[in-house]
Amino acid sequence: MRIRYALTAAATTAAVAALGLAATVPAQAAEYSSALKIKGVQYDAPGRDSNKCSGGNTHNEYLTIKNYSKTAKVNLKGYTVKDAAGNTFAFKNSHVLEPGDYITLRGGRGTDSDAKNVVYRQNCNFIWNNDKDTIYFYKPGGARADVHSYTKRSNDRDGNGYITYHG
């Protein structure tokens, strides 16, 4: 009976592969070998969206990146964040995250501060879509550090515009 089952499983696997029906794994299900991961995103800034540099609310749209290592310090210099449309932000300066520390990447203009754990994109346009988007986070060499897709309907049940990924 075991032999018959093994042949049946093998035949089923071959048929699925031949038909191109292999299951696809959602992007956010993959785990990457990176101490740095996306902790959460405020994809919809509170209030009416206004991308004016003066008086707008793009600084209220942000991405939080955390160092989940228990021992290693990690420098963000060279890491890159992208959205599904290809909008990109590259960390050009050194920002060392201690184990368990985090940094907030905010829209708008401002002064980066390691003491306040904040980096500004120096761009007043919104990067994350309010209905759905994908957040890609890359290591300096181009390897993927983390990725998450979201839809407002599926991932933001309380409707506050914030989604937590890694606690």
Score class of each variant (00 low, 15 high):
residue 1 M to Q: 11
residue 3 I to W: 06
residue 3 I to D: 12
residue 5 Y to E: 14
residue 6 A to E: 14
residue 7 L to P: 03
residue 7 L to R: 09
residue 7 L to Y: 13
residue 8 T to Q: 06
residue 8 T to K: 08
residue 9 A to H: 08
residue 13 T to H: 05
residue 14 A to E: 05
residue 14 A to P: 01
residue 19 L to K: 09
residue 19 L to Q: 10
residue 21 L to A: 13
residue 21 L to K: 12
residue 24 T to W: 00
residue 25 V to Q: 01
residue 27 A to G: 09
residue 27 A to N: 09
residue 28 Q to Y: 07
residue 29 A to F: 14
residue 29 A to M: 10
residue 30 A to D: 09
residue 30 A to I: 11
residue 30 A to S: 09
residue 31 E to A: 08
residue 31 E to I: 08
residue 31 E to G: 09
residue 31 E to L: 13
residue 34 S to F: 09
residue 35 A to R: 01
residue 40 G to C: 03
residue 41 V to S: 08
residue 41 V to H: 01
residue 41 V to Y: 02
residue 42 Q to S: 08
residue 42 Q to C: 02
residue 43 Y to C: 05
residue 43 Y to E: 01
residue 44 D to A: 12
residue 45 A to R: 06
residue 48 R to S: 14
residue 50 S to V: 12
residue 52 K to T: 08
residue 52 K to M: 12
residue 54 S to A: 15
residue 56 G to M: 03
residue 57 N to H: 09
residue 58 T to K: 08
residue 62 Y to E: 03
residue 63 L to N: 02
residue 63 L to V: 15
residue 68 Y to V: 10
residue 68 Y to L: 15
residue 69 S to C: 02
residue 70 K to F: 13
residue 72 A to T: 04
residue 72 A to P: 00
residue 74 V to E: 10
residue 74 V to P: 03
residue 76 L to A: 05
residue 76 L to D: 00
residue 76 L to R: 03
residue 77 K to R: 15
residue 78 G to L: 06
residue 78 G to H: 03
residue 80 T to Q: 13
residue 80 T to W: 00
residue 83 D to S: 09
residue 83 D to T: 15
residue 85 A to F: 04
residue 85 A to Q: 07
residue 86 G to N: 06
residue 87 N to C: 00
residue 87 N to H: 12
residue 88 T to V: 10
residue 88 T to W: 02
residue 89 F to V: 08
residue 89 F to A: 07
residue 89 F to G: 00
residue 91 F to P: 07
residue 92 K to Q: 10
residue 92 K to P: 03
residue 94 S to I: 00
residue 94 S to R: 03
residue 95 H to V: 15
residue 96 V to I: 15
residue 96 V to P: 00
residue 98 E to P: 04
residue 100 G to R: 02
residue 102 Y to N: 10
residue 103 I to H: 01
residue 103 I to M: 12
residue 104 T to M: 11
residue 104 T to G: 00
residue 109 R to E: 07
residue 110 G to R: 00
residue 111 T to M: 14
residue 111 T to C: 02
residue 112 D to K: 04
residue 114 D to G: 06
residue 115 A to R: 12
residue 116 K to P: 04
residue 117 N to A: 14
residue 118 V to P: 00
residue 121 R to K: 14
residue 123 N to L: 03
residue 125 N to M: 04
residue 126 F to T: 03
residue 127 I to R: 11
residue 127 I to D: 11
residue 127 I to L: 06
residue 129 N to H: 13
residue 130 N to S: 10
residue 130 N to M: 07
residue 131 D to M: 07
residue 132 K to A: 14
residue 132 K to W: 07
residue 133 D to A: 02
residue 135 I to L: 15
residue 136 Y to H: 09
residue 136 Y to N: 06
residue 137 F to S: 03
residue 138 Y to S: 12
residue 138 Y to I: 05
residue 139 K to Y: 01
residue 141 G to K: 05
residue 142 G to F: 07
residue 142 G to M: 07
residue 143 A to W: 01
residue 146 D to Y: 10
residue 146 D to K: 06
residue 146 D to P: 05
residue 148 H to W: 13
residue 149 S to D: 13
residue 152 K to T: 13
residue 155 N to K: 11
residue 156 D to N: 12
residue 156 D to L: 04
residue 157 R to N: 10
residue 158 D to E: 10
residue 159 G to D: 09
residue 159 G to P: 04
residue 159 G to W: 02
residue 160 N to K: 11
residue 160 N to H: 03
residue 161 G to T: 04
residue 161 G to K: 04
residue 162 Y to L: 10
residue 164 T to F: 08
residue 164 T to W: 01
residue 165 Y to C: 04
residue 166 H to Q: 14
